Simulated scan of single mutants.
Amino acid sequence: MEEKLESIIPLLNKNLKIIQRADYFNFSIDSLLISEFLNITKNTKNILDLGTGNAAIPLFLSKKTSASIYGIEIQKVSYDLAIKNININNLNQQIYIINDDMKNYLHYFKHGSFDIVVSNPPFFKFNGNKALLNDLNQLTIARHEIKITLEELIKIAYDLLKDRGYFYLVHRADRLSDILNILRKYKLEAKNIKFCYTTSKKNAKIILIEAIKNGRTGLNILPPLIINKDNGEYSDEVLDMFK
C-alpha cells in the first residue's frame, strides 16, 4: 500500500531522481533556493541538514560538492524515502541519513563537527490551537513547531558548527525578527539575507539567511529574488537554478 503512494520524478534538470509520497511532505522550491544559496568552498568537508525529510537538500548539494553530507530526520517514512533516494542516485558513499530526533544529536556527533549546518525547518509556531493544524500528523510535524522549536534547532546548529562555521536557514519572512534575535542569542551572527518574492507585486514570503558562528557584526541585504514572472512562469534566475 505504501509503495502505491510513492512516485519517482526527475529532480529538475540536475540528473537526479527523487521518490516522494503523496501523503507526506514533499520537497518544495524552498529546498532548491537554500541549496543554491549555500557558499561551499574547497575547504568544506562536512555538511549537516537538520530535518532532512526525503533528503532533497542533500541531493541538490551533492551536485555542488564532494563533501560528506549528513541528515537527521525524525519521521521513519521520510527517512526510508531518503535512503531510497540516496540509493537510486548512487550517493550512499557521500550522503548519510540518521532516523532520530535531532535533539539526540550528541549520540552521533561531537561539538564542532561541521563546516556547514543547513535547515528548511517547520515554519509555523504552534500556539495550542489544534484546529490550525494539518489533518495528517506527518504534515503537521513537517510544517509546525511540534517536535522542535526554532530556538532548539538554532542551538543545535551552534553546538555542531565549528568556530566560524556557517549556518544556512530558509524560513518565512514574517519570522525574521524572531530569527535574528535567536541567532544573536546563540552567537550566530547573520551576515547575508536574501528576500524572496513570489512575484514583484507581492511582499516577501521567504527569506534565506547565512550566519557565522562567532562571526563579526555586519549584515548584507542581498538583491531580491523574484520567483515568478507576472504570468506565473518561473523567473530566469530561478530557471537558471534548475539547470
Rank of each mutant, 00 (worst) to 15 (best):
K4N: 13
K4Q: 05
L5K: 02
E6L: 10
E6Q: 12
I8A: 10
L11F: 05
N13D: 04
K14R: 10
L16V: 04
L16F: 12
I19S: 13
I19V: 15
I19L: 09
Q20I: 07
Q20S: 05
A22L: 13
Y24D: 04
Y24N: 13
Y24V: 13
F25H: 14
F27Y: 11
S31F: 06
I34L: 00
E36L: 02
E36R: 05
F37T: 00
L38Y: 03
N39V: 08
N39C: 04
N39Q: 11
N39E: 10
K42Y: 15
T44S: 07
T44G: 11
N46R: 08
L48I: 05
L48S: 02
D49L: 07
L50F: 11
G51A: 13
G53R: 10
A55I: 07
A55S: 11
A56V: 13
P58T: 04
P58R: 01
P58E: 09
L59W: 04
L59F: 06
F60P: 01
S62P: 00
K63L: 07
I72E: 03
Q75T: 03
K76I: 08
V77P: 13
S78N: 09
S78K: 09
Y79D: 02
Y79E: 06
Y79I: 00
A82T: 00
I86F: 02
I88R: 13
Y96M: 03
D101E: 08
N104L: 14
Y108Q: 09
F114N: 00
D115E: 06
V118H: 05
S119Q: 04
N120G: 09
P121M: 08
F123Y: 14
N127V: 11
L136Q: 07
N137G: 07
N137F: 14
Q138M: 14
Q138E: 15
Q138A: 13
A142G: 06
A142L: 01
A142C: 01
A142T: 01
R143L: 03
I146M: 12
I146K: 11
K147C: 15
K147T: 11
I148V: 08
E151Y: 01
E151A: 02
L153N: 07
L153M: 13
I154T: 04
K155Q: 07
I156L: 02
A157T: 03
D163I: 08
R164Y: 12
G165P: 08
Y168E: 00
V170D: 07
V170C: 04
R172S: 15
D174M: 03
R175W: 06
S177Y: 15
S177T: 15
S177C: 10
D178W: 08
I179E: 02
L180A: 05
L180T: 02
N181T: 15
I182P: 10
L183T: 09
L183C: 09
K185S: 14
K185G: 11
Y186N: 11
Y186W: 13
K191E: 14
I193P: 01
K194I: 09
F195I: 11
C196A: 10
Y197P: 13
Y197N: 14
Y197K: 08
T198E: 15
T199R: 02
K202Y: 03
K202S: 14
A204L: 08
A204M: 10
I207V: 06
I207D: 00
L208Y: 04
I212G: 01
G215N: 11
N220R: 14
I221G: 01
I226H: 08
N228I: 07
N231R: 12
N231L: 14
S235C: 09
S235L: 15
E237N: 12
E237G: 14
V238F: 12
L239I: 14
F242A: 00
K243G: 01
K243S: 01
K243L: 05
